[in-house]
Design a protein around this nucleic acid. Structure first.
Lengths: 147, 147
DNA sequence: GGACGTTACTTGAAGTAGTTCAACTATACA
DNA sequence: TGTATAGTTGAACTACTTCAAGTAACGTCC
């Protein structure tokens, strides 16, 4: 068997297991959003907003690959919940900078903390496996995509 | 540091990396569904249906944790697309068995094949890491949850 | 410096996907 | 004959998407 084919086989097996595990734990994440009173779209929006820097509507719409009017709609929702504010940017008054409020920052932190908390099954793995998992995963590209 | 705390730390780091990677690759999976003409709910429905055995509406509604009427609605959609058929069970004529048609089986296979194909970044990892990843992941519970 | 095309964002209307609830039918079971 | 169960129907609602049209601010070219 070629080196390449061997890699594909191992990667396939690993991916399948990981993917299944992600699906199996999906309900926990739904429960998190539920508890925080967020829809999936709202949670994605929240995690797109860094606590320090505001972001233009356009850049958000691009990250979410949606229509600008959709971004307006979603940011409206967040604004009505007091999670973000819009501020017109001084250098270009067409651009609205979407900024997290203190409440928004707190909720974002709570959201990320919950989602980043490893499921119990994972913590229960042998330390050797956890280290290997971490080492392997750290070599994956940390694409700053639609998170 | 306690053994426990160390596990939590490694698991946390590993989980965070994996989680980010799953989010980063989410668009690929959306593209798969798109290509196959399936909504997320339909794809979940399809993968709940084993090619060999039919399943009652009730058991489907339970697996999807939704209202029975919701299951009716979803299965209606699949049936209209020729992916499943309903057959009344002989031993209890109240129960409808939802069965994949040949077309449904083919589509399910295509769906699972696509989703189980590991992303290129993963295949590109060193063989050593892939083996470790696979070994670690195989120790996770393969909960047969909402997949 | 005033008209002109462009860009950022918003508004409104229409549509799809999915959820929830209450009411109903048909079958089973006691 | 009643009561429970499996499934369906219909109505109302939320979350999201798409598209077309509109407003305001910017940049530029004469």
């Amino acid at each position: 068997m070629s080196t390449r084919a061997r890699a594909r086989e191992s990667a396939g097996a690993a991916w399948r297991l990981i993917f299944d595990y992600i699906i199996a734990t999906a309900a926990e994440r739904v429960a998190v959003l539920d508890r925080l009173g967020l829809t999936p779209a709202e949670s994605r929006a929240l995690s797109s907003l860094e606590p320090k820097a505001g972001r233009s509507m356009r850049s958000l719409a691009e990250e979410w690959s949606c229509d600008p009017s959709n971004a307006t709609w979603l940011v409206d929702r967040l604004e009505r919940q007091g999670l973000v504010t819009r501020v017109a940017r001084d250098d270009d008054r067409r651009v609205k900078s979407v900024v997290l409020t203190p409440k928004g920052k707190r909720l974002r932190r709570a959201l990320i903390n919950s989602l980043y908390t490893p499921p119990a099954d994972l913590v229960a793995l042998p330390q050797r496996d956890l280290d290997a998992l971490r080492a392997a995963a750290s070599k994956l590209p940390a694409r700053h995509g639609d998170r």
